[in-house]
């Protein structure tokens, strides 16, 4: 087939990915409104000082959210976020015990453990066919076993080097923010530009379609758990640097927000296309929402309720657009007549 000038199609409409726009516009609009609200009612929450304090933690959430998104878009669910983050936190604080020279080996060990956990999750879900929730609950408990074996539950002070790496800044931008941006860049680049990433997206968007063109669906689904753990590990390393004396449960408070940002970013919990940029913006949104609430004097408790409402609202918007795939009949295609689907 000779490439011809694609006349009719490209000029008829603008080249704009509609699927991308869905979750993106919602979350961007919400974030902008929030920023305006902040400027008007709580300017202190968007001051450079406040941002410098809060953005690193938003970055950590963004990285964890990216990992969770990879799993969720493949129709999975990863409850081992908490363990994954906590383990990498204790590994990079306990092993060096304040000695900068030991930091690199500690980070390598943490990455190795993350790989191992990811493979473990993916084998249980992809090969043993366990329900993702059950498998990751179990693995999470095992990881916490590891966390206590390493730390004994006692926090240890982080190394200076790591504190500089994670807490320092580059041209006025916090290093943690740079790490999150790089993580986002890598994930987005792989997804949009590489053959593997494009196929990964397609498997998430429709496993049935991917199977008909001969893609190894299960292998892509398993891959998600491995990459997710690597991202959790990165987040854990950053937390270890940002917090002077991190506890053994540093990952726990990230579990629910990681799911929340994925959902707010427009990725369906039933699987489908993943939206990395929207997920990261959702992390900024959630973070700024807490900052705003804090600045206008809302107590911690009410902040959580506001988050729940934002989450419910976000899901509500997305679920109205999405048909409920749950209700779909099993793909028994030789129904006698095409209209033999039963209306509810």
């Amino acid at each position: 087939m000779t490439p011809r000038q694609p006349a009719s199609i490209r000029q008829e409409g603008k080249v704009f990915p509609i699927a991308f726009a869905k979750g993106f516009i919602t979350i961007v609009a919400a974030t902008l409104i929030l920023v305006v609200l902040c400027l008007v009612f709580a300017p202190s929450s968007v001051s450079s000082g406040a941002l410098a304090g809060s953005l690193p933690f938003a970055s950590v959430l963004a990285i964890v959210g990216l990992g969770q998104m990879l799993v969720v878009q493949q129709g999975g669910f990863d409850l081992s976020v908490a363990g994954g983050v906590s383990l990498s936190v204790v590994l990079v604080t306990h092993y060096p015990a304040g000695d900068d020279a030991q930091l690199l080996p500690a980070i390598l060990i943490a990455l190795g453990c993350a790989l191992l956990i990811g493979v473990c999750n993916s084998l249980l879900v992809g090969y043993m066919r366990l329900n993702a929730i059950v498998a990751t609950i179990g693995v999470n408990a095992l990881i916490y076993g590891g966390v206590f074996a390493v730390s004994g539950g006692v926090p240890r002070i982080t190394t200076d080097l790591l504190a500089t790496i994670a807490g320092g800044s580059l041209f006025g931008i916090g290093n943690a923010v740079v790490f999150a941006a790089v993580a986002l860049g890598v994930v987005a680049l792989i997804m949009k530009k590489t053959v593997m990433g494009r196929r990964f997206e397609a498997v998430g968007a429709s496993p049935a379609l991917a199977a008909t063109i001969g893609l190894p669906v299960r292998r892509y689904q398993m891959l998600a758990y491995v990459f997710a753990q690597l991202l959790y590990c990165l987040a854990g390393i950053l937390i270890a640097g940002l917090t002077t004396q991190p506890t053994a449960f540093q990952g726990d408070p990230l579990l629910l927000p990681s799911v929340a940002v994925v959902v707010l970013g427009g990725t369906s919990l039933l699987g489908g296309r993943g939206f990395p940029v929207s997920t990261v913006i959702a992390a900024l949104f959630l973070n700024q929402l807490s900052q705003f609430s804090y600045a206008v004097g809302v107590p911690y408790s009410a902040q959580t309720i506001i988050q729940a409402l934002a989450l419910g609202f976000g899901i509500g918007i997305h679920s109205i657009r999405l048909p409920n795939k749950n209700k779909k009949l099993s793909t028994h295609s030789n129904l006698e007549e095409t209209n033999e689907t039963y209306v509810s």
Partner: peptide, 25 residues
């Protein structure tokens, strides 16, 4: 409202936790 069971009860999870803290610090 077409929520998945995970999504609905997750939002409820976070909300209830907030309510607990609202009532007692």
């Amino acid at each position: 409202a077409n929520f998945t069971p995970i999504a609905a009860t997750l939002a409820m999870y976070i909300g209830l936790q907030g309510c607990s803290f609202l009532l007692r610090n």
